[in-house]
Amino acid sequence: MTVLFGQLFTGISIGAVLLLIALGLALTFGQMNVINMAHGEFIMAGAYTTYVLQQSITGAGLSLVVALPVAFVVAGAMGVLLEILLIRRLYARPLDTLLVTWGVSLMLQQLARDIFGSPNVQTRAPEILTGNVALPGGLTIANNRLFILALALAAVAALTLALRLTPLGRRIRAVVQNRDLAAVSGIATSRVDRTTFFVGSGLAGLAGVALTLLGPIGPTMGTNLIIDAFLVVVVGGIGQLKGSVIVAFALGVLQATGEYLTTLSVAKVIVFVAIVAFLQWRPQGLFTLRTRSLA
């Protein structure tokens, strides 16, 4: 029984990681139909930001707190740069964007290798985040997992509120729903795009900081994440965040269950088969935005 609850929490925490790495993508893909394969490298940039900050800020707790906003800005700035230099020239060709950003991701990985070396680097986590909360019945819940869950939910909440309540959010929603109409209504769509890209990439930076608590920090860390992140967005449906949220947790629990009942390798394949089957049922993802635009 303890194991089962443990597994349920494992599934939820896998979901939280998926959500965190996919959230920024859901935003940029939803708004601009742009597949950014360098998103994984923005996550990597966030992780390395934590590492670099720890060289000067020795307190593990403080450096983590500082790393969150700094990584958001660093990754966000990289995103804006990418948007200005390449992506905005390619809005009409989403598939080409995929290949171009793949090229960018290759270069960023090699850059990381040249700056930080190919072996992984280490960061120190604050002691409190390496412990756990003991529940009755021998069940323990790891603090770093709780932290990531909280961070993911906070990011979703902040993003939702921003989209609902702020003028910028209203502009973003307008562009997502009907770009041309938004443009003729006087919204500077290209400026909105750039802001969206900043926020979406910045979220990748946040994810990178969080992932230093869980996994390796190295030049190739992004490549392992990007496909999972895209599957979440594709299955969740574009244009709305709730699809990604639901799908992230659903896939997390599915994977944890599969891992427990079979093996980790088989579980990965099960998740993939489930996704193909799901897309048979809803080819546009869980939620689709109904618009009048013909395309």
Binding site: I35, P94, I227, V234, L279, P283
Partner: peptide, 18 residues
């Protein structure tokens, strides 16, 4: 089911991983 474009690209890539 009209899965196409980027959706198809990502699916085909996931197939390679699997």
């Amino acid at each position: 089911r009209r899965v196409r474009g980027a959706y198809f690209a990502i699916l085909s890539q996931a197939l390679a991983a699997a």
